[in-house]
Amino acid sequence: MKVHVNMDICLLHGQCVIAAPEIFSFDDNGDLHWVEVIDDSQVADAEAASDACPEQAIILG
């Protein structure tokens, strides 16, 4: 599964970093990073992160 974050609407709430810390992280500058291709074992975490995003900025597909 592919993970994408629409940075045009992301407001850096950081809920994804809490829900799926192995996929999403902040660097020291506060920029969001994410694993772009995940395996099946991480899909549930990615979906939880997507649901937890108040801006609906996370696109899975």
Binding site: I18, D28, N29
Partner: peptide, 10 residues
């Protein structure tokens, strides 16, 4: 506060 700073305290 920037996200990384809050994350540390969280």
């Amino acid at each position: 506060a920037p996200p990384a700073l809050i994350a540390k305290h969280r």
